[in-house]
Simulated assay, not measured.
Amino acid sequence: MGILELSLIGIGLAMDAFAVSICKGLNMRKINYVYGIITALFFGVFQAVMPLIGFFLGRQFSTYITTVDHWITFILLAFIGGKMIYEALSEDSECETCGSGIDIKELFLLAIATSIDALAVGVTFAFLDVSIFSSVLLIGVITFVISFIGVIIGNIFGSKYKEKAEIFGGVILILIGLKILLEALFF
C-alpha cells in the first residue's frame, strides 16, 4: 500500500475527529490555540494508536471488534452530544467561561469514539503489506492537522452563534454516531 492510499485512509479516518473538533471550537468564545493543540493531540494520538492496537490484535479478535464497534461509537457520541445539548439549553447566558475549559475526560471519550473505526482499519492492516509504524504515524499527523483546523473553523462560527452552535454541535455528534450505527447495521 502506497503513501497516497495511506494518506486517503488517514483523511477518511480523520473526518469524524474533524467534525468533533469543529464542535469543540464552537464552544470557545475566543480562540485558544493551546486548547486547539491539546484537542488535536488527543485525536491525532488516538487515531495513530488505535490502528496499531488493531494491527497487533489482528485476526484473533477481528470478528468481535467489528461486531460491536458501531454500537460503542454510537453510545459514546450520543451521550456526549446529548450532554452538549443539555448544557446549551440549561447554561446561564451570562457565563463568561462556558466551553473554554479543557475537559480531559470528555476529550478522552471523544477521542475513543472517533477512533474506533481506526482500530478496525488496523485489523485490516494485519492482513496487508504495510509498514505499520509509518502508516500509523501518517494517520496520526493527518488527524492532528485536520483536527486543529477544525477547532479554528468551529471557533470562527461559534463566537457569533454560541448557544445555537452548541446545540448544533451536539446534534452533529449524535448524527455522526447514528450514521455509523446505521451504516454498520444496514450497509
Rank of each mutant, 00 (worst) to 15 (best):
F108Y: 09
S147E: 00
K179G: 04
K162E: 05
H70T: 01
F61V: 15
W71D: 08
F144N: 06
A165W: 01
N155S: 09
F125C: 10
L119S: 14
I85N: 15
T124R: 15
K179F: 04
S93Q: 13
D92R: 07
G170N: 04
E94W: 09
V130P: 09
S159M: 15
F74W: 03
V123N: 10
I102P: 00
T73C: 11
S100W: 03
I152M: 08
F125A: 11
D92K: 11
F148C: 03
K160D: 12
S100G: 05
G81F: 01
F61H: 12
G154S: 01
S134F: 08
L119I: 06
L138E: 09
S135C: 11
G101F: 05
G154H: 04
C98A: 11
Y86S: 12
I85Y: 09
I174M: 12
F148P: 01
I146A: 08
Q60A: 15
K83Y: 05
G81V: 04
I104M: 08
A113V: 00
V145I: 09
V171G: 02
F157Q: 11
M84P: 06
S115Q: 05
G82F: 13
I172A: 00
E163I: 12
K83D: 11
S100L: 14
K83P: 02
L173H: 06
I72W: 03
D129V: 14
G158S: 00
A118G: 09
D103Q: 00
G158L: 02
L137H: 11
V68P: 04
S115P: 05
A165R: 01
S147C: 02
F108E: 13
L138N: 10
T73P: 07
K160I: 10
L178G: 13
L173D: 03
E166Y: 07
T97L: 08
K179W: 04
L137W: 13
F144E: 10
F74N: 03
L76P: 00
I176V: 06
S159P: 06
V136W: 07
F148I: 01
E87Y: 06
I149R: 02
V136S: 05
E91N: 14
T63A: 14
G99Q: 00
Q60H: 12
G82Y: 09
T114W: 01
K160V: 09
I149D: 02
G169W: 00
S131E: 15
V136P: 13
G140H: 04
I116H: 08
I142W: 06
L138C: 03
I132P: 12
A120W: 10
D129L: 12
I146V: 08
I85L: 12
L137V: 14
T66V: 15
N155T: 09
G140N: 00
G140F: 04
S135V: 10
S115F: 04
K162W: 09
L128F: 12
A165L: 02
I180D: 07
L175P: 01
L173C: 05
I176R: 04
I156S: 01
A113W: 10
I180R: 00
G101D: 06
I149E: 02
H70G: 01
L138F: 03
A111T: 09
E106K: 10
G154R: 01
D103T: 00
E166V: 11
G177D: 02
S135A: 15
T124Y: 12
S135D: 13
V141C: 08
L178M: 12
T73A: 15
D103N: 02
L109Y: 02
F79A: 06
L109W: 06
K105N: 08
G82N: 11
I146W: 03
S100M: 10
T97F: 02
